[in-house]
Design a protein around this nucleic acid. Structure first.
Lengths: 179, 179
DNA sequence: GCTTAAAGTTTAGATGTCAAAATAGTTTAC
DNA sequence: GTAAACTATTTTGACATCTAAACTTTAAGC
């Protein structure tokens, strides 16, 4: 089988496993992974606008709106219209929201975490930087030169997430809206 | 930032990039990634039942049914009830289906593929095996021992996809159905 | 032969996800 | 100061995806 074919299969398995875990999490903790992620983001930053959240957790605003609708319906978050700028909407945790969030397990599978943490340090780095390289290569639409392609990159494990967002031309900018 | 946190971010970016590409593909080729994947699977195997397809592309049968509904509505595939065993339904490509499939780009981003293929051979292996390890660690629910955890594994790049399916106890078996 | 269990497929109901359109509010330009 | 341009959020419409339940056959028991 061609290598890229294998890459594709591995990716699909990862994506599926992630999705399945989210559902399992939802049963156990009453929160899906994205819901938990958003709650955590709000907890970490205090009040946040939709746009902030979207950028923070890497989804579109539309998605944030939908998810917050559900969280609000369950009284886990509150929305408050901005006073200074009424276009903005600020979300904050309710007591119940903080509560449920704190009792929920991590958004990454525990088995995975356990296994991952058992690896040697260099192996963890290796895996992390491989993932970051894949992410970078995929988002590559808006990477000007190709610093990610030079060989040394593999063992530097620098935070690619930052590096990517920096070039926010259009690809994953969540609110590009170039109509 | 904790390493597992970074892993999580990288994964989310990969998943999102994959999804976004699927949508782009859909505009360009009229097929989303999963639709294309299913078409390719059917093309490769000839007639297939829902269950076969589900196993092959790693999704649940329900998903296959839904996607085939859409493909059938567009006359890209045909369904045929089994004669011997009428519970089964066989899907096969129509002429139009083979056509559109062959004209579509790959289900993996072209930019990614281009970049990936520019890497040194050993780097490709490294990335592939990292992905496979992550997939394995995630699906780990039904892996008996832990061959994936021993250190040598990282540079062997053996087809984990096979290795995983082999233990098909329940985790991703697509039809567990323990009611 | 009828009843029950098993197997395969489909349907129903939930989420997450996005792009594009609609809405509402702010700024800027003249 | 009003119109045009811009910005933030929500709504709409479409997919993909899963689990659980329902349905359709087939196979097995008695």
């Amino acid at each position: 089988m061609a290598r890229h074919q294998e890459v594709l299969i591995a990716l699909r398995q990862i994506i599926r496993a992630t999705d399945l875990y989210s559902r399992k999490l939802s049963k156990v903790a009453g929160l899906t992974a994205p819901q938990l992620l958003i709650l955590q983001a709000i907890d970490a930053h205090g009040e946040m606008t939709m746009g902030d959240i979207a950028t923070e957790v890497s989804v579109s605003q539309a998605t944030v709106t939908v998810i917050l609708d559900r969280l609000e319906k369950r009284a886990l978050i509150e929305r408050k219209r901005g006073e200074r700028d009424k276009r903005r909407v600020y979300a904050s945790l309710t007591h119940a929201g903080r509560d449920i969030m704190e009792r929920a397990p991590t958004p990454l599978q525990e088995e995975f975490m356990a296994r991952f943490s058992h690896l040697e340090d260099w192996e963890q780095s290796l895996i992390l930087s491989s993932l970051q390289r894949v992410a970078a290569m995929m988002n590559a639409g808006d990477i000007d030169a190709s610093p990610v392609l030079d060989l040394g990159a593999i063992d530097r494990a620098q935070p690619a997430s930052e590096g990517l967002r920096r070039h926010g031309s259009n690809n994953h900018s969540t609110q590009t809206d170039q109509k």
